[in-house]
């Protein structure tokens, strides 16, 4: 015991191990974010050199801009719908994979492929498949008689949002599937047998055993994916650029357009700071819930 303590006590040398990582976090995360916070109170411009401190003016101009609320509402809708879809598809796929006796590995490998796609290739391949002239899906829909004309998935105002959501579900469901599957595989079979002997219905076993075991994993995935989807700039930007008519305009694209389109980096910083504050609140609530579940699991 003494020797163990000696090994643990020497924290000073332990610091050398984590020092480089701390430096990276400070220089590449904390410092840039603080400087962004500072820029958000200034007239920082992409090209013009002079910078003036203007207090909360950027924030006021954003919060009185109706376009901001459009983007905010779109972001929330896009996050909730996408994450629900990813969870449903990923969870059901994991349940199916967990019960089949054969070919588990093959199906898992095939289903995981979208995860490896670079975002630019996701955008290009789906734009090609859904292309309104020679795309596979619009043409096959006409071919089987489902539609009379070639469907314009990215130009039709009723469809564009759902098209982007569908692509996001396609991309994100495998991550849910794989992680839920590995949680499912840790459930001891005896628990189900015991429940069966006690006369539990299969729904009861599912509710009390399966869901209870995987909920912390699902909760954590929901935190991570909410953040990722809410923050995601590339996928929507590359698929639609926020259009048509701002129907798929999300906050990150709004910030990008303000910063690099209008060249107002100060205003763009303020938008991203608001984005971060909102996410911090959401995460705080999630962590509260996760803590509660983890405590219950330990009991």
């Amino acid at each position: 015991m003494k020797r163990y303590r000696r090994l643990l006590q020497t924290n000073a040398t332990g610091m050398y191990f984590i020092l480089p990582a701390i430096l990276v976090v400070v220089l590449l995360l904390i410092y840039p974010i603080l400087s962004s916070l500072y820029f958000s109170f200034t007239t920082k411009h992409l090209i013009r050199p002079q910078v003036k401190f203007i207090g909360f003016e950027n924030y006021i101009s954003i919060l009185t801009n109706p376009d901001f609320y459009v983007a905010f509402a779109n972001s929330i809708k896009w996050t909730i719908v996408s994450i629900t879809g990813q969870l449903l598809v990923g969870f059901t796929a994991a349940l199916a994979l967990n019960r089949i006796p054969k070919l588990k590995g093959l199906y898992r490998t095939l289903l995981i492929i979208p995860w490896a796609f670079p975002v630019i290739v996701i955008a290009i391949s789906w734009k090609w498949i859904l292309n309104g002239v020679s795309g596979f899906i619009p043409n096959i829909l006409v071919n089987i008689g489902a539609t009379d004309e070639l469907v314009q998935f990215f130009a039709n105002p009723d469809l564009v949002f759902w098209t982007v959501v569908a692509v996001n579900i396609w991309f994100g469901a495998p991550l849910f599937m794989v992680n839920v599957l590995s949680a499912l595989q840790t459930i001891p079979a005896e628990q189900y047998e015991a429940a069966q002997i006690d006369g539990a219905s299969s729904f009861q076993s599912f509710w009390h055993i399966t869901l209870r075991h995987v909920r912390v994993v699902i909760g954590l995935l929901l935190v991570l994916r909410t953040i990722w989807i809410f923050n995601n700039f590339e996928l929507v930007y590359l698929l639609t650029g926020g259009g048509p008519a701002d129907l798929t305009m999300t906050l990150p694209i709004f910030a990008y357009n303000t910063g690099w389109g209008l060249k107002q980096l100060g205003v763009a910083s303020a938008i991203t700071v608001l984005l971060l504050i909102f996410l911090l609140c959401v995460c705080f609530l999630y962590f509260k819930l996760l803590d509660k579940w983890e405590k219950e699991d330990e009991m």
Partner: peptide, 17 residues
């Protein structure tokens, strides 16, 4: 996890500067 929270677009602005 919190560092994962930082929107890439938030970092993009200070990085470009």
């Amino acid at each position: 996890i919190t560092t994962y929270l930082f929107p890439p677009i938030l970092l993009a602005i200070p990085y470009s500067i």
